[in-house]
Design a protein around this nucleic acid. Structure first.
Lengths: 129, 129
DNA sequence: AATTTACAACGAAAAAAATAGTTATGCAAC
DNA sequence: GTTGCATAACTATTTTTTTCGTTGTAAATT
């Protein structure tokens, strides 16, 4: 499985915006920053670093570049959570969820919702065997 | 609710070791590093920064310090996951779990395990009302 | 009590990350 | 075609993080 490199905080901010807007020019990304917005060149530099790291690509329109995510938000979140679960819950997703269930980090309603979805998944996966 | 500051990568490494060994002197922490181990002073500095940030405290034995975590691994993981869920699953723990269930990131066995725990929790919480 | 050892504290140096100024160039407006 | 604007690329600066050498001192060793 391909290893997805970690993003720095600044890089992650830009990725979050790109994921939200799907694709965009530097000025589009800039618009989505909260005040105080960084300088145009700051964003431009970060997006080029993201390109080097393989997180985005671009489509050139003459001289201007439209940036497009290459790594999806779900891919990144998957690898992010995986390493979190590894470091904090000795690689057990089950341990993580039950920890948060016990800690009342999630409500009964949420738990019931999760159970419903999981029951369906369990059924589906058992059928597909 | 108290905000727990983010740890840098180096700081997190030291915290992981401290959490594992419960408490320890700099040399104890150093022992638990994989090769290539950092210099003694590197660890000493990081642990003092962690102290400034309020993550650890120390007990002095004469001139030497035994460092003890102040923020527990579960406290930190809670705040860590919370911000992850916020950024990646619009604050819904349920969305996160179901995403990973759907993505087959977790096995049927794990799901069943989780469901069992959640059922118990649901019962408990409903009773306590 | 002189010497060595062990350690915290300090501070400096190096590396990484974040920010933004400068430059060059293509394109549009005149 | 000259001027001005927009933008990417490049480079420099600043800030933060990481790393570790140096120093001072207490305690242990001789």
């Amino acid at each position: 499985m391909q290893v997805i490199r970690e993003l720095t905080r600044a890089e992650e901010q830009v990725m979050q915006i790109l994921w939200k807007i799907k694709k965009g020019f530097v000025k589009d990304i800039l618009e989505h920053f909260d005040e105080p917005k960084p300088a145009y060149n700051t964003v431009s530099t970060i997006v080029r670093i993201l390109q080097d790291k393989g997180f985005v690509t671009h489509k050139a329109y003459g001289r201007t570049h439209e940036y497009i995510p290459l790594v999806s938000k779900s891919e990144y979140s998957k690898s992010h959570l995986r390493s979190f679960v590894k470091d904090y819950f000795s690689n057990s997703f089950e341990k993580m969820v039950s920890f948060f269930a016990k800690e009342k980090g999630i409500s009964v309603k949420e738990m019931e919702e999760i159970m419903k979805i999981m029951e369906n998944e369990v059924k589906k996966q058992k059928l597909s065997k």
